[in-house]
Computed example of a mutant assay.
Amino acid sequence: MRTTKMYDTLMQMGRWFGYRPGYIDLCRLYTTEDLIEWFGHIADASEELREEFDAMAESGATPRDYGLRVQSHPILLVTSPLKMRTAKNLQLSFSGDLLETVSIHNDNEVLDRNLEAVNRLIAACGTPDEINPSRIRGSLEQQWEGFLWNEVPADHITDFLESFTTHPKARKVNSTLLRDFIHTMTETGELTSWTVALLGGGEGGNHTFPGGLTIKAMPKRSADKDIADRYAIGRLLSPRDEAIDLDNAAWAAALERTRNMFNPDAGRQKNGAKPSTPDAPNGPSIRYIRGKGCASNGIAPSPERGLLLLYPLDPQQSGSTALAGRKDPVMAFGVSFPSSDSGVKVEYAVDHLLWASEYGPAE
């Protein structure tokens, strides 16, 4: 029941969760909803920082010349102000990030408006370029159920985000901030051409969108039954979905980068599983290759390419009592931004090296 607003103290408390592989089944924790949310946030921030360390190591840099960042929170502090010393809050870009709606409204009026926003986007995109798209991945073929549009203008995406209402508990996935960020990036010539995918392939029922586009099996995402004020899910995207716009060469380059960054740390594996070399690229590498390319593999950078993934979730499969009477899908989305050095939107607490490299020495 003890509360603290300091990341570092929370992480020390979090050791009771079973930080050694194979011990998590011995732990049972009863606590408050706020603390659960805070622990979830620092887990995300910690994993993001680990990815920063991996990227630093892969580039051959050291902490002496690589500025590190830690994701901030509207309530929590990374540590006490005395320990922060020269760290500052800095607005950084969404570039290189994956954002997905995992906190979703369960109010039918809001959900109807969001569905209409998706309908307008689909109508604006016109005839799909691909139906049930497939991709070669190494020696295998992957296929998706759904529809895909290429080279969608950025104004279609910003119009969609302007009319889509994200949940206030989804602090980072804010449709208004995303819209403004994309608009700012287009002024620099980036994020001007989008891939949009409407994906099914789940266990749910059918739904027909404008133009007769029928999703025959809506995805299933189970609600967290301990959270009543919203439709809260664990993960929206299937990992392979983020690479749907990569050809085989780019996918292979992203896999190579993933393996170069691979850290076989047993403590980062679920259920104490033995670490194994990745057989598919991770998200940071996918976004890096999309945005910055890979000269050694002949892949040109494409910072103008964004990816919007639309998921019509079946409310009947959600397990949420608030959605039990709903027939139409609950629309959720993921946005994959290519890596770039442009754009300023997300607030982070950063160390003095990153601050100095961006804005000069701290006063």
Rank of each mutant, 00 (worst) to 15 (best):
residue 266 A to T: 02
residue 295 A to Q: 13
residue 233 I to A: 06
residue 257 R to D: 14
residue 241 D to K: 00
residue 327 K to R: 11
residue 215 I to V: 15
residue 277 T to S: 10
residue 302 S to M: 11
residue 245 D to S: 13
residue 248 N to S: 14
residue 314 D to H: 06
residue 277 T to Q: 09
residue 223 A to N: 07
residue 329 P to C: 12
residue 206 N to I: 00
residue 240 R to G: 05
residue 307 L to W: 04
residue 205 G to M: 00
residue 287 R to V: 05
residue 217 A to R: 15
residue 216 K to N: 15
residue 269 Q to L: 02
residue 225 K to M: 05
residue 296 S to G: 06
residue 302 S to L: 07
residue 328 D to H: 12
residue 260 N to I: 11
residue 279 D to R: 10
residue 235 R to V: 14
residue 308 L to Q: 01
residue 212 G to M: 12
residue 306 G to C: 02
residue 240 R to P: 09
residue 215 I to N: 09
residue 259 R to W: 08
residue 243 A to D: 01
residue 266 A to I: 10
residue 300 A to W: 03
residue 303 P to W: 04
residue 225 K to C: 03
residue 325 G to M: 05
residue 278 P to S: 08
residue 295 A to N: 09
residue 203 E to S: 05
residue 204 G to I: 01
residue 237 L to D: 13
residue 277 T to I: 13
residue 330 V to K: 05
residue 267 G to H: 04
residue 251 W to A: 14
residue 328 D to A: 15
residue 206 N to K: 13
residue 268 R to Y: 03
residue 255 L to W: 10
residue 288 Y to C: 09
residue 226 D to L: 10
residue 278 P to R: 07
residue 288 Y to Q: 13
residue 211 G to A: 11
residue 209 F to N: 06
residue 314 D to N: 07
residue 271 N to G: 00
residue 298 G to Q: 06
residue 226 D to C: 00
residue 325 G to L: 09
residue 208 T to A: 13
residue 278 P to V: 06
residue 243 A to W: 04
residue 250 A to G: 04
residue 225 K to G: 05
residue 309 L to W: 02
residue 279 D to T: 15
residue 250 A to I: 01
residue 213 L to K: 12
residue 239 P to M: 06
residue 275 P to W: 04
residue 227 I to M: 03
residue 204 G to K: 00
residue 329 P to L: 09
residue 298 G to V: 11
residue 218 M to K: 14
residue 288 Y to L: 14
residue 260 N to Q: 15
residue 216 K to P: 03
residue 211 G to M: 07
residue 298 G to T: 08
residue 255 L to V: 07
residue 325 G to K: 12
residue 269 Q to F: 06
residue 269 Q to T: 05
residue 229 D to K: 05
residue 289 I to W: 14
residue 325 G to N: 12
residue 269 Q to I: 00
residue 324 A to H: 10
residue 271 N to V: 01
residue 232 A to N: 07
residue 230 R to T: 06
residue 259 R to T: 04
residue 266 A to S: 04
residue 330 V to C: 12
residue 282 N to C: 12
residue 215 I to H: 10
residue 251 W to C: 14
residue 205 G to I: 00
residue 328 D to P: 02
